[in-house]
Design a binder for these strands. Structure first.
Lengths: 251, 251
DNA sequence: CAGTGGTCTAGACCACTTT
DNA sequence: AAGTGGTCTAGACCACTGC
């Protein structure tokens, strides 16, 4: 029994590394600054590169770092607050929202969406693609599902697809009376498609916001919006300003 | 130019693996079923274990798998919807919420929280720890910050700490008039403390919900709640039921 | 072209749960 | 004790960005 148990539960190296790096970021680095490359950092801390990367990955997940292939690792700015639940009760495409429609096609929705829309299996619906830009950066990509029955007066002379048709569909939507809205937020990983639009590699973590729009006692539209989890903080019902890091507090 | 460019952008092995596994989960496995162990799976797909793990990690992130050390990898049930913004305008601790207070102490809050509370630097506030259980599983851990000025009539005869004092502080809170609430959601990784409570390893992804409670023109309390990102879908303003996987749709 | 982060390998050992 | 997932290593090559 002579042995002294200094650490009954030794913490993993990458966890300790993360702590050290966090403190260094708080005290010795400023936003936008470039860190030493991974091979140098690993050597400096005496660990394998894979171990260092495990720590960097977590810090990127927490929005503290930004890594870009071929460029390097930089200190990320504080997350942007993005209003998600506070725009009042308006349809997507109402004047003043900061979404930009890019395309419109007809597809058979995935089963999960068809359930929400209560459409028949195999029934086609309109899909409108939109992208959202905040402070000059792309923050979200959205896919809107709108049953044909929600926009019955869509003019035949409108373009069959593309941004022009997207605007036409959204314009028709405004004629309905919006009765309410449900929202849900969950974690996901970005699809190959959305990855390009969001300037991230496929698989990067995103916050998926599913919104159901109610009108006339049924679901008139469903929106699936994916927000960059590294750079965004979703705000509901107001604007909360949060900073992390002790140095940022006004004296 | 006789060469045929079949794949100008070859997709990573782990990404392809993830696709294959997703399809297998949808068609050949049912909830709770145990997958073969990682070494066997890696051998079966002809990849290194680390590569297989990269695919499993993503699937766990998306809530499709659950991995437990010493046990194995199982197919996860669909995420549970957890109401976050729909309980109406009530204080934490109001009768009927499914949070359970566990402890109460006085601390100097972190700078980010002190900013929200508009307390002086170094000023102590009450902290109430609570945990939330949904369908028999721990889903969230919360730390409530309540300035002394928000509960001025806290009786001196109440316990100085512990669950009893937590209940006393929350009871006093109900006397204030709640004027509004702000919320924000962002991605984080679970602290060592919360990890135990949520039955996850430190660093696991969580959804951090920061709520600010307004009363008398100021911020009367701040809640920082961390929800398990793998098992939770946060709902705002209603109940959306979402399923993934084609086989789950009712015929 | 050099330098960066991203992917992948084949091993080793550790912490944990179950038998 | 056996079997699982978690951590770690030392190396290799690839994809991308800039000069």
């Amino acid at each position: 029994m002579g042995t002294t148990q200094l650490e009954s539960v030794p913490e993993p190296k990458y966890w300790h590394l993360k702590t050290v790096l966090t403190e260094a970021l708080d005290s010795e680095f400023s936003v936008g600054e470039i860190l030493p490359n991974e091979r140098d950092l690993a050597a400096r801390f005496g660990v394998a590169r894979a171990t260092l990367r495990q720590a960097l990955e977590q810090l990127e997940l927490e929005g503290r770092l930004q890594r870009r292939r071929g460029v390097g690792t930089t200190v990320a700015p504080p997350r942007v607050g993005v209003a998600v639940g506070a725009e009042g009760h308006t349809w997507p495409g109402a004047t003043g929202d900061d979404w930009q429609p890019t395309d419109c096609t007809d597809v058979v929705p995935p089963a999960a969406v068809a359930d929400l829309l209560e459409t028949e299996q195999g029934e086609q619906v309109h899909t409108v693609r939109r992208s959202r830009v905040s402070q000059g950066r792309p923050v979200a990509a959205e896919l809107l599902y709108i049953p044909h029955s929600s926009v019955p007066d869509l003019s035949a002379i409108d373009a069959p697809s593309g941004a022009a048709r997207a605007r036409a569909v959204l314009r028709e939507l405004q004629h309905l009376e919006l009765e309410g809205r449900d929202q849900a937020v969950e974690l996901g990983s970005v699809s190959a498609e959305d990855a390009k639009e969001l300037d991230r590699l496929p698989g990067a973590p995103v916050l998926v916001v599913t919104t159901r729009f109610h009108s006339g006692g049924r679901t008139a539209a469903v929106s699936v919006a994916t927000y960059r989890a590294d750079t965004c903080r979703l705000t509901f019902g107001g604007d909360i300003e949060i900073h992390h890091g002790p140095e940022r507090r006004a004296s």
